[in-house]
Simulated assay, not measured.
Amino acid sequence: MFGPPAFMVDDVVHWGFDLVSPDQTFTVKDYQAFADAKIADILKRGKMPVVVGGTGLYIKALVDRPTFSSVAPNPELRAKFEAMTNQELIDAIGERDPDALASIDEDNRVRLIRALEIITTTGRPLHEERGHEPAMYNALHIGMDVSREELYARIDDRVAVMVAKGLVEEVRVLKEKYGCDSPAMTGIGYRQICEFFDGKVKLRDALARIKYDTHHYAKRQETWFKADNRIQWVRSSAEAVEAARTFIAQ
């Protein structure tokens, strides 16, 4: 179902890269199913799985086991919502289910459209479509406590490395094959370079926007994770290793 099995990074097997092509949708539910299967395989081989990432909703899906709406995609509704701006989507959700906005990233157009689709189809608040399955994992949550200044500097350095390794050419090739409206091309980095190729901005402005948007995204991630009292915040890799050893020994 999914792409290449794994590859090595610093002598550690990594899973979850290049799972689907850029024109395919990969939902939180898809991620949950993929991760469950890989974790089961890793544990069966007597190894310890480590889940790494910054998308809080995906980690929550794996650890806290929320159930997902059974409402099927409605092409007609989605076409209607696609014609709306993000602010119009936010206003429409707010009119019907104000509480839903607290759990939706207002910059994530895909999730705004999906939320409005569910609310419109069911006529009920979004939370009534959600439940929880029994937890499957006893997990240790570790977060790296980095100053905002250092975090932003790392982000800016990473953008420079991405450009040096061919980000602009990668987007050009993907744009020619899939267009800029495909699911993967809406992500940070791809979206801004698409605007450059469309003649909307200069390259230097597109790169500056990647940095700015990533800073903003990291700030939202920090807010999300700081609200999770299960996370042990550490300032170094050594602290993280020690926390993991203590957890495993229990």
Score class of each variant (00 low, 15 high):
72 A>N: 08
78 R>F: 00
49 P>K: 03
109 R>K: 12
97 D>W: 06
221 Q>S: 14
134 P>Y: 11
147 S>N: 03
69 S>Y: 11
37 A>G: 13
189 G>M: 10
63 V>F: 14
48 M>P: 08
111 R>C: 06
57 L>S: 11
137 Y>T: 07
204 R>Q: 14
201 V>A: 04
151 L>R: 11
106 E>I: 14
246 T>D: 11
109 R>Y: 02
169 E>Y: 10
237 S>K: 10
81 F>R: 00
17 F>L: 13
68 F>Q: 03
235 R>W: 01
140 L>G: 05
52 V>W: 10
17 F>D: 05
71 V>W: 01
35 A>K: 08
116 L>P: 01
45 R>V: 07
135 A>W: 01
109 R>A: 01
108 N>K: 03
149 E>G: 02
22 P>R: 01
36 D>W: 12
153 A>L: 09
162 M>T: 03
55 T>R: 15
44 K>V: 05
33 A>H: 09
208 A>L: 11
185 M>S: 00
93 I>E: 00
224 W>K: 05
34 F>E: 06
54 G>F: 08
108 N>Q: 13
196 F>H: 06
190 Y>I: 00
194 C>Q: 01
200 K>D: 02
36 D>P: 06
184 A>T: 00
180 C>F: 00
14 H>V: 10
219 K>S: 15
35 A>V: 15
224 W>D: 06
250 Q>I: 09
37 A>F: 09
34 F>L: 06
44 K>W: 09
139 A>L: 05
177 K>A: 11
107 D>T: 11
236 S>V: 02
125 P>I: 04
67 T>L: 08
167 L>H: 10
50 V>D: 05
84 M>K: 15
205 D>V: 14
105 D>A: 14
60 K>I: 07
56 G>H: 15
13 V>G: 01
148 R>C: 08
24 Q>E: 13
224 W>C: 02
104 I>D: 10
102 A>F: 08
87 Q>V: 04
34 F>D: 07
4 P>W: 07
132 H>K: 10
53 G>M: 04
40 A>I: 05
231 I>R: 09
14 H>C: 13
158 R>F: 07
220 R>Q: 09
12 V>R: 12
63 V>M: 14
6 A>L: 10
228 D>H: 03
86 N>L: 05
145 D>T: 02
75 P>V: 05
79 A>N: 12
205 D>A: 15
154 R>Y: 08
147 S>C: 03
224 W>G: 00
70 S>V: 12
189 G>Q: 13
98 P>I: 03
176 E>K: 05
221 Q>F: 13
147 S>Y: 10
36 D>Q: 11
8 M>S: 09
140 L>K: 09
27 T>C: 11
77 L>E: 03
249 A>T: 10
110 V>S: 13
194 C>G: 05
18 D>E: 12
11 D>T: 07
5 P>V: 12
211 K>M: 13
